[in-house]
Amino acid sequence: MSRGSSPLAEPVPAGQESGLRSRLTEAGLAAFARHGYAKTTVDDVIRQAGTSRATFYRYFENKRALFHELSGDCFRELRALADRLGALRPEEDARARLRLFLADYDALHVRFSGVIRAWTDNVAPLDPELAKEADTAFVKLVTAFCGPIDAAGTTSDVPTELRAALLYVVVERIHFYARSQYSDIDIDRLHDTLAVMIQRAFFGGGVPTGSRLRIGGR
């Protein structure tokens, strides 16, 4: 079906424009996750959203424009996560709050899986403005790890910034693998173990007597 022969756009009651746009963005997330960016078509998105091509083009110029909007949403959520992480300090409840951060990071990874995979595979390069926004988001997240590392006051020959970057890579790659089709890792056990490991290795926290580090299968 050509764009010119699309059915009429779905009528939108007053005040419900944002709801229809959200339906399309949610459909885009689902389609990119299921098919991958390269194989996803506008038809895939509109089928998922239960609407028409004309309605899609009312909000987005093309598939790439939808992808860019979803990328911007992901970067904003990453910055919000960084704000919460930056407040983390090696106190009594640090492990519980770190565990919560890991669960939130995993939820973001799941929600934007198709978008993140497109960045990783470099099949949908970002325009310069979005690329700059991406750099800002990831730098902010790495920088946020510096706060609790410095607050721990542990002695190391490795600069804080390098330790923070390494910690981010650990968190990112573990979640990327744990959510892959080849993994049978129990994500809840993974977060329990990862929180203990991070606190012990990076934040200087001890491990309770008798505790076990395990990730276990499902």
Rank of each mutant, 00 (worst) to 15 (best):
A33R: 15
A30N: 07
F56S: 06
R97W: 09
A118T: 00
F56N: 00
L88S: 02
A27P: 14
L88E: 02
L78C: 09
T51W: 04
D127C: 07
V115F: 03
F112W: 11
K63Q: 05
V110P: 02
A131L: 09
L81D: 11
S71P: 02
G72P: 02
A107E: 06
A137V: 00
R89G: 02
L88A: 00
S22N: 13
C74P: 02
D83I: 08
A94P: 01
R34E: 12
D44R: 08
V45T: 08
A134M: 13
N122A: 14
G50F: 01
L88K: 00
A103P: 06
Y59H: 14
R47L: 12
D135P: 01
E69Y: 07
V42E: 12
E133S: 07
R95D: 07
A107W: 07
R99H: 13
V123D: 12
R117F: 10
V110C: 10
L24F: 05
Y57I: 05
V45I: 14
E77R: 14
R89S: 10
V115A: 00
R76W: 02
A137L: 06
P125I: 05
R97G: 07
F112N: 06
S22A: 15
R84P: 01
P125Q: 06
E26Q: 15
Y37I: 07
R84Q: 12
L85C: 00
R23E: 00
R79G: 06
I116R: 14
F112H: 14
Q48L: 00
E61W: 07
T136Y: 03
Y105A: 12
L100W: 04
L78R: 10
R23F: 06
F56Q: 01
F75L: 09
S22V: 13
A118P: 04
H109L: 10
Y59M: 10
R21A: 06
G72Q: 13
A137H: 00
Y105E: 06
R53M: 12
R89V: 14
L88N: 01
A33G: 12
D135T: 12
T55L: 08
N122T: 05
E91T: 15
A27E: 04
S113E: 15
A137M: 08
Y57R: 02
R79C: 08
A103N: 10
R111G: 06
E92G: 15
K63F: 00
R76M: 11
N122R: 15
H109S: 15
Q48I: 10
R64L: 08
R64E: 13
D73K: 11
A94K: 04
A33I: 04
T41P: 05
P128L: 09
R95L: 09
A80L: 12
F56M: 05
D43K: 13
F60C: 11
R99L: 14
T136G: 10
A30R: 13
F32Y: 12
D127M: 03
V45W: 09
C74S: 14
D73Q: 15
T136C: 03
E133V: 03
I116N: 09
P125N: 09
N122I: 04
A27N: 08
V115S: 08
Y37E: 08
G114H: 02
T120Q: 15
H68V: 03
L70G: 04
F60M: 04
